[in-house]
Simulated scan of single mutants.
Amino acid sequence: MTDTDQATAALARDIDRTCRLTGRFVLRSGRTADEYFDKYRFEADPVLLDRVAAGLAELVPPGTEVLAGLELGGIPVVTALARHVGLPCAFVRKTAKAYGTARLAEGAEVAGRRVLVVEDVVTSGGQVVISTGQLRELGARIDQALCVIDRSEGGTEALAAHGVALRALLTRADLAAHRRA
């Protein structure tokens, strides 16, 4: 196992240990589960978030001009990542605010620039598809997205259908692998 593989395995283990909760949880679907993955726990831990950002930095495609973090979970991730790669950020709302600047994307200008969409966790890819479309309407050039965790539930395929390649630091399988070891 290479040093990079060991670092990735250690990161997966630490994220899983930090974020996997047990108890009784009602899911968005209405189902109940005895296990829940609280992604905000790795985003709230500055040391763990910095390790995530360092890993993501290796995946930023050459030529990227702006990092676009999606509301809510993508915002801390994109901010930490920007510190590692020195690129400006845009903070993308789910809907444009109705006051002040009334903008969908705050921060760095996206029009005419090569933008990398950054999300914390991708499941179906739905919000990334929506936000990518909105950013393209603003003139952003987008062909890739980056996430911390791909839950491997169709997001990669959904994004590919819209001309966006998804790169993930970790997958659901990576998080589960340390428990099997």
Rank of each mutant, 00 (worst) to 15 (best):
S29V: 08
R113H: 10
I149T: 07
V118P: 04
I130E: 15
F91R: 04
F25G: 08
G133L: 09
A44L: 04
V66P: 04
V60E: 05
E65H: 06
Q127S: 15
L138Q: 07
A33L: 00
I149F: 12
R113N: 02
G126C: 00
A33V: 00
L135F: 13
G125T: 12
I142E: 02
R93E: 08
S29E: 08
G55C: 07
A57H: 03
T32W: 00
L81S: 08
V66R: 06
A145G: 14
A57F: 03
R31M: 13
F25E: 05
T132S: 15
Q144S: 11
T64R: 10
V52M: 07
G73N: 13
V129C: 07
T22V: 05
A54L: 06
V129S: 02
R114N: 13
G125Q: 11
G23E: 00
P88I: 02
L67H: 03
L87T: 06
L67F: 07
F91L: 14
P76V: 08
F42W: 13
I75Y: 10
T22F: 09
G74D: 11
A98Q: 14
V128D: 08
D38N: 15
P61H: 03
T64E: 11
T101L: 11
G63D: 10
F91C: 05
L21N: 05
L104S: 10
L87Q: 06
V121Y: 01
A108E: 09
R24E: 12
G107D: 09
